[in-house]
């Protein structure tokens, strides 16, 4: 275990230490550490209200942490605005889909391309060469990404007219358009049917395998988490209660307790399920 941790720390792309956030009297995230190895798929799980989304919001600069550090490839991100964090190389999707409703699928991706383009408004008005090259490269990148998530034919459709599963995929493509080193996916499988979830699983794998982007996942679908993740961190009431490889985490007594309550974890359920599905049915 400690050997694994130190190995992870050495090759970490994202390194979070003692991250803390309070809202009034509520300790939402309490001194949470997270080491994300480069080109890995890691998950942050925990019951509702465990502080997972708050944790993501701090990493992406939406909330400023009260304490702790966030380093991306050695660069400190604390205090940066969300747009600066994105430029540094972190992208994310949302628990509730937040596509730009009145834009087409392609335009949504073009917006995501924003930080990688250079032409300003003067270039746009004068149609300078810089502007034309910029737009051309953006459209090209959008085409590649739409193809990647399997939405090439829907490029000119209004984003909100797409089926639910496609909207989730479009959101991932839009996040990828910013050229991230790390992509944070906040409950990407929420509301998906089993078939859509299977497709999503393949997509997340190819994000890592083909694009080399590191994936951090918040997810309640335990089947997805257990089969995809290489490493899992469990939060409960803002505190990290367990971490490790999927098979270790799922038989952890504290994790059972957090999900099922004290009695259930100590009693029949734990014995019966451990080694087979574990928390998978929770």
């Amino acid at each position: 275990m400690s050997a694994l941790l130190s190995k992870a720390a050495a090759g970490s792309v994202l390194s979070v230490k003692a991250l803390t956030k309070t809202f009034g009297g509520l300790l939402a995230v309490n001194a949470v550490d997270l080491e994300v190895p480069r080109a890995s798929i890691v998950s942050v799980i925990g019951p509702n209200g465990a502080g997972k989304t708050t944790f993501f919001n701090m990493i992406t600069g939406i909330y400023e942490p009260d304490a702790g550090s966030i380093e991306l490839d050695g660069r400190d991100l604390v205090g940066l605005r969300p747009d600066q964090v994105t430029k540094a190389g972190i992208a994310r999707t949302f628990q509730n889909i937040r596509l730009f409703a009145s834009m087409t699928a392609e335009e949504n991706i073009l917006v995501g391309r924003h930080p990688r383009l250079k032409a300003g408004y003067v270039d746009a008005l004068l149609r300078t060469r810089k502007f034309r090259e910029d737009e051309e490269s953006a459209h090209e990148a959008a085409g590649v990404l739409l193809d990647f998530v399997g939405l090439k034919r829907q490029a000119q459709e209004l984003s909100t007219s797409l089926p639910y599963g496609d909207q989730r995929r479009l959101e991932i493509a839009r996040a990828l358009a910013t050229n991230p080193k790390v992509i944070l996916l906040d409950e990407p499988a929420a509301g998906m049917n089993p078939r859509e979830t299977e497709n999503l699983k393949a997509l997340i794998r190819s994000v890592r395998d083909e694009l080399g982007v590191t994936v951090v996942l918040i997810e309640h679908d335990m089947r997805l988490v257990m089969t995809l993740s290489e490493y899992i961190t469990v939060l409960d009431y803002g505190t990290k209660i367990a971490e490790g490889l999927p098979h270790v985490v799922r038989s952890d007594a504290k994790v059972m307790e957090a999900y099922l309550g004290r009695g259930a974890a100590a009693g029949e359920y734990g014995k019966q399920q451990s080694g087979t599905d574990g928390v998978a049915h929770v």
Partner: peptide, 28 residues
């Protein structure tokens, strides 16, 4: 031209629709 067919125009429209998400797309 500016609003509908350029990077800054898209960014302005994105901010108009959802400022938080626009920020996470790297838009100041």
């Amino acid at each position: 031209r500016l609003v509908n067919h350029s990077r800054v125009g898209r960014a302005i429209r994105a901010v108009a629709q959802d400022r938080v998400t626009a920020g996470l797309m790297g838009i100041d």
